[in-house]
Computed example of a mutant assay.
Amino acid sequence: MASISLPNFSFFLLLITLSFYSSCDALTKCCITSLFQLGDSIADAGNVIRIPGASLLARAYGPPYGETFFNKPTGRFSDGRIIADYIASSLNLPFLNAYLDKSGVSFSQGVNFAVAGATAMNTSFLAERNVGVVPYNVPLPTQLEWLKSHLQSTCGIHCKPTLRNSLIVLGEFGGVDYWNSFSQNKAETEIRTYVPFIIDGILNAVRELIQLGSTRILVPGVFPFGCLSAYLTRFPDTNPNAYDQYGCLRSYNRFATYHNIELKRALENIQCEFPHINIVYGDYYGAFRTIFRFAPWLGFNPSTLVSACCGGGGRYNFNFSAGCGSPSVSACPNPAQYVNWDGLHLTDEAYRRISNIIINNMLPKFGCYGFGDSSVLSSY
């Protein structure tokens, strides 16, 4: 990713906008009345903890998950909120409830279908390539079926007006497919052959959402894998040049960039097919790297950028024998100074900073009126 040189006024504008967080009344003047979220553990708001038999290294059903904001675990893989929560708040919508929550919660303004461990591809696709997945995998096609079932039960044949006034966040699909593949010692050259299939799967989901009546769809890219504590622990390299100035593994970031470039190109093509539909690429990678770049000004500790706040020890405070939430594992006392929360997921504060960039970038593209200079935010 190319570096940029911002003029002083733009630099301070960026910092101000990164620090800004507001409600819909101040931030937007558009009619988005509901939000639907699909995805994996980055977006899960409590679905996986409601699946019988789901075994989790990161135990999001117990403390210290949720300690910063909710003061209790909610099934979110963070010490507090996730990007979906910040997007909902920016639209003056309530936090989304998990689809599998049958306790009488409201789904009147949207639903969260994301499930930790979810892949973009069906289990059969990965099995054919000897890539294992969790037995409770709820891949993208299944989540789409959940969405259709929910719509059928709530609005039946009259769902198009609902979807016209909704935002669909498709989720950062592909991350689990790639993690499982790398962890099972697949060569990068082979994993690269999966990318076109994963991109096609995402595009097929976009087309299906459009056919249902969706007019605003946010499609995020993946995070920089090489900056996550789990990747750094699982794939150490003895060559100092394998790491960048922040301590991230260059090769895994290059792979994530490859996926994101291909996804963005594909979304530009499908936008030409549907010129009246707003399909927006969510640059989660760029937003993540931006908070690394400006970490000291944003309150993050530069010496712990790639270390997990909650983990079982080791160089990056992460190991695979004792995940966050295990009895012997404790969290750092200052999670707001950390980006990595549990090795694969981020802190409430990191998600807040990333969300501010994504929100201010996407809203004008969805016909909303954003705060600040979004061209500065999108120029990294």
Rank of each mutant, 00 (worst) to 15 (best):
S5H: 12
P7V: 13
N8S: 11
F12N: 10
L14P: 02
L15Y: 11
S19W: 11
S22W: 07
S22K: 12
K29R: 15
C30H: 10
I49V: 15
R50Q: 13
R50T: 10
I51W: 00
P52Y: 12
S55N: 15
L56Y: 10
A60M: 10
G62E: 13
P63S: 14
G66F: 11
T68E: 05
T68I: 13
P73F: 01
G75H: 04
R76V: 07
R76W: 13
G80E: 08
A88D: 01
N92F: 14
N92C: 15
L93K: 02
P94Q: 05
L96Y: 01
N97S: 11
N97D: 08
D101W: 01
K102G: 02
S103Q: 12
G104H: 12
G104C: 11
Q109I: 10
N112G: 06
A114F: 03
A114H: 03
A120V: 14
N122W: 06
N122L: 08
T123W: 00
T123G: 00
T123K: 08
S124D: 15
F125A: 07
R129H: 14
G132V: 10
P135K: 14
V138H: 03
L140A: 04
E145W: 06
W146L: 03
L147H: 01
L151M: 09
C159P: 03
V169K: 00
G171L: 05
V176R: 01
D177F: 05
F182R: 05
F182Q: 03
N185F: 14
E190H: 11
I191V: 14
I191Y: 05
I191F: 04
I191W: 07
T193K: 08
Y194K: 02
V195G: 01
P196Q: 09
I198H: 00
I202C: 03
I202R: 01
N204P: 02
N204G: 09
N204W: 02
Q211A: 14
R216F: 06
P220S: 09
G221Q: 09
V222S: 03
S229G: 12
A230N: 09
R234G: 06
F235D: 07
N239G: 04
N241V: 06
N241D: 14
D244Q: 08
G247N: 07
R250T: 01
Y252A: 06
N253K: 04
F255Y: 11
F255L: 12
A256W: 02
N260M: 09
N260R: 05
L263C: 08
A266G: 09
E268H: 13
P275E: 06
N278E: 08
Y281W: 09
G282T: 07
Y284C: 01
I291M: 06
F292R: 07
F292Y: 15
F294H: 09
T304S: 13
L305S: 02
V306C: 13
S307E: 05
A308M: 07
G311E: 05
G312W: 08
F320S: 13
S326T: 15
S328G: 07
P333W: 04
Q337V: 02
Y338M: 05
V339A: 10
N340M: 06
G343Q: 07
D348N: 15
S355P: 12
I357A: 09
I359S: 00
M362L: 15
L363Y: 11
K365D: 13
F366T: 05
G367W: 12
C368M: 13
S379I: 09
Y380G: 08
